[in-house]
């Protein structure tokens, strides 16, 4: 049992932290890919920018470094790393009594560094290690969460946020390459394939399963359906279902239309999907993004903004 507002904040900490990590990683991979001045490198940058929803004409003609700078520091851009960290940390401050000191210190320190007066200079001087440190610090935060916070209700809300955000972000990344929309960017070359795997932090785990013979089909299969890789859509959906089932156990809501049912349905759909029969992955990826957003609303209606009359204590 915890305050509804607190549950909401913990959930958003999870989402913002995951988003900050994803955008930092995409930025890092964009920068390292464009060290090679060729067609493939430009393709990688396009994939990355499209995956975080940047309009392409927006960035044409601009140096990658400049685009990345904005992805990190632009206060106007709701999805920038600085904004995600600021909001995640602001949520953490609002539930400071509910998270552990170890978690708070990790997140606060990272926030102070990225918003500090030296941050932009540090980024210009050594962009790659700057981004690398953000990602490493976020991993420390998740590690502290795992190692120091009780694995109870609050922890589940936080991880629910992480996995919901992750499923959506990976689905969006795959939509760029396998989606139905016009102007999709096929994984034509080796560099782009490698880069997409690295954007999902999946290169090494993928190689262990499929070896270095990269295949777009295998790449899609791995990132969508692998049961063990923590950043596959399937894995994230299974965790969402698990946390929601546990959270819903104590909630006496009358109509059983809870988010755990939606998550269960999505996870079955992924389990029994047959890519050969379908028109490709496009419709399924679109469904994943849409279902995640329905689950998000259901979480809100079930745990946070429920009607009062129905929820008086017995």
């Amino acid at each position: 049992m915890m305050l509804a507002r607190v549950a909401d904040s913990l959930y958003w900490i999870g989402r913002y932290v995951e988003r900050a990590e994803h955008v930092s990683r995409l930025s890092d991979i964009m920068l390292s890919a464009t060290l090679d001045q060729n067609e493939a490198a430009i393709n990688v940058a396009h994939v990355a920018l499209a995956a975080v929803g940047e309009e392409e004409d927006d960035k044409t003609g601009r140096a990658t470094l400049e685009a990345v700078h904005d992805l990190i520091f632009d206060r106007e851009d709701a999805g920038s790393v600085v904004n995600s960290l600021a909001r995640g940390r602001e949520n953490a401050r609002q539930v400071r009594d509910q998270i552990t000191t170890e978690m708070w210190e990790r997140l606060n320190l990272l926030y102070l560094r990225v918003t500090g007066p030296d941050a932009e200079h540090a980024f210009t001087q050594r962009s790659s290690s700057f981004l690398h440190e953000i990602i490493a610090d976020l991993h420390l935060f998740m590690g502290a969460t795992d190692a120091t916070m009780s694995h109870g209700e609050g922890w589940r809300f936080l991880l629910l946020g992480v996995h919901l955000e992750r499923a959506q972000l990976i689905a969006r990344l795959l939509e760029v390459c396998f989606g139905e929309a016009e102007g999709r960017l096929p994984l034509a070359d080796h560099l782009t394939q490698m880069s997409v795997l690295r954007m999902a932090c999946a290169l090494e785990p993928y190689l262990r399963v499929y070896t270095a013979e990269l295949e777009p089909k295998h790449l899609l299969e791995f990132l969508m359906f692998d049961q063990e890789f923590p950043r596959s859509i399937r894995y994230a959906t299974l965790r969402m279902e698990e946390h929601l089932t546990s959270l819903a156990r104590h909630t006496e809501h009358p109509a059983h239309s809870g988010p755990e049912r939606l998550a269960g349905r999505l996870s079955s759909r992924l389990e029994f999907a047959d890519m050969e029969e379908q028109q490709g992955a496009g419709p399924l990826l679109t469904a994943v993004v849409a279902e995640c957003s329905r689950i998000h609303h259901a979480i809100y209606e079930t745990f946070v903004a429920y009607p009062l009359e129905q929820r008086l204590p017995a």
Partner: peptide, 26 residues
């Protein structure tokens, strides 16, 4: 103990409740 804000509290029939994830609590 919980840290509440005004918006977390609800008064019904002269009883004070807080909004939790599992409904209202005294």
């Amino acid at each position: 103990v919980p840290l509440v804000e005004g918006r977390d509290l609800v008064v019904l029939d002269n009883m004070v409740y807080m909004r939790t994830t599992q409904g209202l609590r005294r």
